[in-house]
């Protein structure tokens, strides 16, 4: 009686699933009218973007450009270009940080307060936990360079979107990527079974894609249920990951949270897809800022399967009116 009543406690949403081909992408001239770009463009303000990629591909993708607030010659300033972290430091901070660097500026014009420049290639093989140089950098970041900073960032090859920045400074909200590495999970089959496509089987497509959507959502949630070694009692949870192998896999999640416009998000997706290895999978999602009372978020989630660089599986979650 009660149990079968339709849910009245939330505004229901619908999920539209598309499996398609996006063709060749030219990042200079992005298509606007075709899927998935048109779907992305139909979103309002974007609140959060989650990018999931296999851990082993993370270091190669980190071509992200970051710029902290500040001036090269006055404050402590940081830039990150193609994985190279450059820090412009005041003398006092440089001495406390205990890092190796070079004096900055023209000889003879350094005055009484010389400034220092420290460079680290974060993608070099020595940049791992346990290595001396890296640990020292981590120590310096924790103990000395620990003031909150404002960051600007952009993907490689892109000039920073001035419209976006205007909005950011006006509202004083900073969008910076947050990286969560080594999310433990199992290898799930991410390719669409060819039989579904060959037969155009919509019922099976709904089943398979619902399970995949749930799994990707759990990865984004960083749920312990997807880990290969999760041996939680069935009394707590009976969740089963979609078919695949039991082999462990590590996923890296990069999250941008704040207030973004869809043009910027579209460019980010295009850059990510073109720079990411075509052999590997990636998942990209963009969630709208909810402005309605029920707190329902429209969302778009995209999966590019491994070894099929031009194909995509897309879920569009839309509030029903």
């Amino acid at each position: 009686m009660f149990a079968r009543a339709p849910p009245s406690i939330y505004q229901p949403s619908k999920c539209f699933v598309t499996y398609g081909s996006m063709g060749h992408i030219d990042t200079k001239q992005l298509p606007y009218k075709s899927k998935p770009w048109s779907s992305l463009g139909s979103l309002d303000f974007v609140h959060k973007v989650d990018l999931l990629i296999p851990q082993e591909h993370y270091e190669r993708l980190s071509n992200v450009l970051m710029l902290s607030e500040g001036k090269v010659t006055i404050d402590n300033m940081f830039t990150l270009i193609n994985g190279t972290l450059t820090m412009y430091l005041e003398k006092e901070v440089y001495e406390r940080a205990g890092l190796t660097g070079k004096p900055y500026g023209i000889k003879g014009d350094r005055g009484l307060k010389p400034r220092w420049i420290v460079t680290h290639d974060l993608r070099s093989p020595s940049m791992f936990h346990g290595k001396k140089g890296f640990d020292r950098l981590v120590y310096a970041c924790k103990k000395v360079l620990n003031q909150p900073m404002k960051w600007l960032f952009s993907d490689v090859g892109q000039s920073i979107d001035s419209g976006l920045l205007e909005k950011l400074s006006a509202t004083r909200i900073d969008v910076k990527p947050e990286v969560k590495q080594h999310i433990q999970t199992t290898q799930v089959a991410l390719n669409m079974p060819p039989s579904i496509l060959a037969e155009g089987d919509r019922t099976d497509l709904e089943l398979v894609t619902s399970d995949l959507y749930e799994w990707l959502s759990l990865v984004r949630l960083e749920s312990p249920r997807i880990a290969a070694n999760d041996d939680v009692d069935p009394y707590i949870s009976r969740y089963k990951a979609p078919d695949g192998t039991d082999h462990a896999m590590e996923v890296c999640k990069i999250t941008w949270q704040g207030f973004m416009n869809t043009n910027w998000v579209r460019q980010l997706l295009a850059e990510t897809i073109t720079h990411h290895s075509s052999q590997s999978w990636l998942s990209f999602s963009a969630t709208e800022l909810s402005t309605n009372v029920a707190g329902v978020h429209n969302e778009l989630m995209l999966l590019r399967p491994p070894k099929a660089p031009e194909e995509y599986l897309m879920w569009e979650i839309k509030r029903t009116k």
Binding site: K14, C15, F16, V17, T18, Y19, G20, S21, M22, G23, H24, P31, S34, K35, N191, P194, S195, I196, L197, A198, G200, R202, L205, E206, T209, S210, A308, E310, E311
Partner: peptide
Amino acid sequence: ADTSISKKPRLEKSHDLLTCTVKNPQ
């Protein structure tokens, strides 16, 4: 089978191969 499907009608243009609407979420 996978490649034969994806290779068949595709050139440069993007297109949908299959769509559905989730009607009964579990």
